Amino acid sequence: MNTALRATSDRPCGPRDGDPIDQIAAALRTDGYIVLPAPLPPAALGGLLRHFRSIDREQFRRAGIGREDEHQLNRFVRSDKIFWLDNTNLSVNAYLSWMEALRVGLNRRLFLGLFDYECHYAYYDRGTFYKKHLDCFQGSTNRVLSTVLYLTPNWQPRDGGELAIYPPGEEAAAPDALPLLKVAPRFGQMVIFLSEEFPHEVLTVNRPRYSVTGWYRVNNSLGDIVDPAS
């Protein structure tokens, strides 16, 4: 069910034209998700990891759940810390350019109406987790595709922190429900899936875990209310 892609160049460019984006689009159309073992070149991954490590941990904020008036901190649901990204860093800017090229390519193939992309670094310390959830906010349909790019070097199975993805409609399933798949947070691996369809969780982490987590969104602007907000 998974489609493997691999970049063969260290050039700081977007996804290659042709088959790779076709394969991503086909997987999203048929399965709703895809795991990419190494879609970005090593130089790009190294730049992101160096930037991640250069940020003072005090600048990371404990992540919450919900949005705006419904936003709250709940350590029983999630215990990671996040740092929102923009294009001021060269490595992040190259990554955002890559994701922009993917956005354009997926819109051409799937007509998803993807409007923009937002992302943050996610830092999971030992013993942290994120319980089963959906990436769309209640009453909102603006998050369409979720992406996670893993930056933890030398991950081993004993390190934990896998992403468990459950079948659609299983968000209220029993705690012992079996996942559809588990994605190992290996360095350079990326997973993309439909935000509104797949409940998922980050299993307990046994060593610090780094990733770039992001979402492609549609434009739900209505009247004087602008969404996505700037």
Rank of each mutant, 00 (worst) to 15 (best):
T3Q: 06
T3V: 11
A4Y: 13
R6E: 00
S9V: 05
R11N: 02
G14V: 02
Q23Y: 06
I24K: 01
I24G: 00
A25H: 01
Y33N: 01
V35Q: 03
L36P: 00
L36I: 00
P37F: 12
A38Q: 09
P39W: 00
P39V: 02
L40I: 05
A43C: 06
A44W: 08
L45K: 10
F52C: 06
R62F: 15
G64Q: 03
I65R: 14
R78G: 00
D86W: 13
D86E: 13
V92H: 02
V92W: 03
A94M: 05
A94W: 07
A94P: 03
A94Q: 13
L96W: 05
V104T: 12
R108W: 13
E118W: 15
T128G: 13
H133E: 10
H133T: 13
C136S: 14
S146N: 07
L149F: 14
L149W: 13
Y150K: 00
L151M: 08
N154I: 02
W155Y: 04
Q156R: 12
Q156T: 07
P157V: 11
G160S: 15
G161C: 06
L163C: 08
P167Q: 07
P167E: 09
P168W: 04
A172M: 15
A173P: 09
D176A: 14
A184W: 02
P185Q: 02
I192H: 02
L194G: 00
E196G: 11
E197H: 14
E201W: 06
E201T: 08
L203K: 10
T204S: 09
V205S: 02
P208A: 10
Y210C: 02
Y210R: 04
V212S: 11
T213F: 07
G214I: 12
N219V: 14
P228N: 14
S230R: 14
S230I: 11
